[in-house]
Design a protein around this nucleic acid. Structure first.
Lengths: 345, 345
DNA sequence: TTGAAAGCGTTACCAG
DNA sequence: CTGGTAACGCTTTCAA
């Protein structure tokens, strides 16, 4: 780790000049504050002479004037800020791509997306912190927001609250992402490949239970009313842990494993191969996320491909909700899942 | 892709109640707004009777009152918001881990971290947008912020501007991340392994030149004054592209390749193997980022391990700068790079 | 112990 | 066409 040495300041602050305001611009341009506002906002309802416009612009330029967003939205009574708390759990590249697209699409609709780091806070306490910013919409990934929280946000003026998570929350729009489906997909696939004793990797890394638990349940659901069985396999994301698990693999008597996602699946698959366990003959392996890397191992990794909602669709949902705040909250099942069958299963 | 169907609102908005203010709380509790402020902020300079406190708290609770952050910071004249524009280019898991840690550490120091999605804007135009939020500090990843931009931010009251990128910017603290080093590392390593004709993968995905160009330069620098040569290898992150490149590999006459990062390196290494090119005997392969996945391929991927600055160190730098705004801007070289030699080279 | 009032930077309204 | 004035929600100083 590169250290940043701690320096102590040498000389004292030179000059701390106050931040220029529109009044300063007005003074310098020799006009009123109202005129400054008109000119800088290109207000079309009022005609300002060209020389005046120029003087104002030059004054603003000279002072380095930048309007104060807080003052503006205080005055306006609303903002176009869409708040999105940073997800509490480590998320993968899929989510980051989704978020980047969402941000860009909302930007196109003239919203400002702000990702807010609310560490430590949780539940309705977090909701209060978000409400203080008076966002016009709030997008909450994961669970943790209750009906109380939604109410707080709405009372604070949020015209749309959208949850992206496993369950509907009273009063909020819901983009349901039920990871049960992912496991179910994998389970059905393995079953159809003739497997009957199926291991399911459960990451030991904190926070991932939110995803791993429903995925496990999905596998269980796929196997209900069959003669197949499921075994939970706790696993840390480390080579040694995978090697240990592989070392006792034969004693587990499993003929297939769902690896939680591609990364854990690849880790385990490699460990199995190093242990001499034949994939897929002796044990089939399935991951999830459809990462490029899964295609590079041999055998190529079978996987569950996830479809997240398009950023554009979500952006439009938000925009609709903002414009029609009284409308009934929408609920959409947005997590698509389908097996991509490759050589490992 | 899962579609979100477009619904039209059925019934009109039920009731749009105004957002409760401290005045509403005061009215309900039968006290003045000042008293409300004292109670809710636990102002120690003033003594308020316990019954009054209770009445105020209950009133706030009943109305679902949440203070208005903008109004508060307008009045206070400053905020504790640390603004961090979202990086414009796709960044990897390393960056995301770094950012999460930074956020958590700044949160510990009682700053509020906000990641701001400024798509489309660039350079000093973006700086103005950021300045409107009057953040107490701004952390700018990548290049694109000029001295002008720094000046704008400072005039708008930012007490610390920190760039994380390839070069120092006048007036700002700089965490230099010179990716030249990464390539240099790889080049020196390959040279020492006796390689003389070295390919360097240049991702075709947009935006990555910011990193790939200096990495290439670093390889070149390592090979200066030797008899070794460098060849640029444009490559899209797709199996077919890698296969095509591998198909004409022997005609290139290279005995080593630096794959830009682990992902591109793995993609290419697999394609080379599929083409029958022996790794490392015929061609050595080196990646960068030291991802876990690189250890799972055979041969295991050699890589350049990157050390980003610790979130804690950066958080402390920010805090110091905020408290001592007149201090000389600090410059630190924070990108550590070292080769992790495995079997592919 | 509480209350009245000023003021933070903007913009909308309404006279001039 | 332009300029004064009020108001957004909050905190804080001063006075009662």
């Amino acid at each position: 780790m590169v250290q940043i040495p701690k320096q102590s300041a040498g000389r004292p602050a030179p000059v701390r000049r106050p931040v220029p305001t529109s009044a300063d611009v007005a003074r310098l341009a020799g006009v009123s504050r109202a005129t400054v506002s008109y000119v800088l906002n290109n207000t079309s309802a009022v005609r300002i002479s060209e020389p005046t416009r120029r003087r104002v612009r030059e004054a603003a330029e000279e002072l380095g004037y930048v309007p104060h967003a807080a003052a503006r939205s205080l005055r306006a009574g609303h903002s176009r800020m869409v708040l999105m708390p940073a997800p509490a759990v480590p998320v993968g590249p899929l989510y980051h791509r989704f978020f980047a697209e969402l941000q860009s699409e909302l930007g196109r609709l003239d919203y400002t997306v702000v990702q807010y780091g609310s560490v430590g806070l949780r539940g309705d306490e977090a909701a209060r912190a978000w409400a203080e910013l008076r966002p016009v919409a709030v997008l909450v990934p994961g669970s943790g927001l209750g009906p109380q929280g939604v109410a707080v946000l709405k009372r604070a003026g949020a015209r749309a609250v959208v949850t992206l998570g496993p369950e509907r929350v009273e009063g909020a729009h819901a983009l349901l992402m039920d990871h049960d489906r992912v496991g179910h997909c994998a389970g059905v696939h393995l079953l159809s490949r003739g497997r009957r004793r199926i291991g399911v990797v459960m990451p030991e890394e904190g926070g991932l239970e939110i995803f791993s638990r429903p995925r496990l349940d999905g596998v269980r659901r796929a196997l209900r009313d069959t003669d197949a069985m499921v075994a939970e396999l706790p696993l840390a994301y480390e080579e040694e842990a995978a090697a240990r698990l592989a070392g006792r693999w034969r004693s587990l008597g499993l003929d297939a494993v769902f690896g939680y996602n591609d990364e854990y699946a690849m880790l385990l698959m490699r460990a199995l191969q190093d242990e001499g366990v034949a994939v897929p003959d002796e044990t089939a392996v399935v991951g999830a996320d459809d990462l490029m890397l899964g295609r590079l191992l041999r055998p190529r990794l079978s996987t569950v491909h996830l479809d997240l909602p398009s950023g554009r669709d979500l952006a439009e949902l938000v925009d609709r909700a903002v414009r029609e705040p009284g409308a009934e909250p929408e609920t959409h099942e947005v997590l698509g899942a389908r097996v991509v069958h490759r050589a490992s299963s």
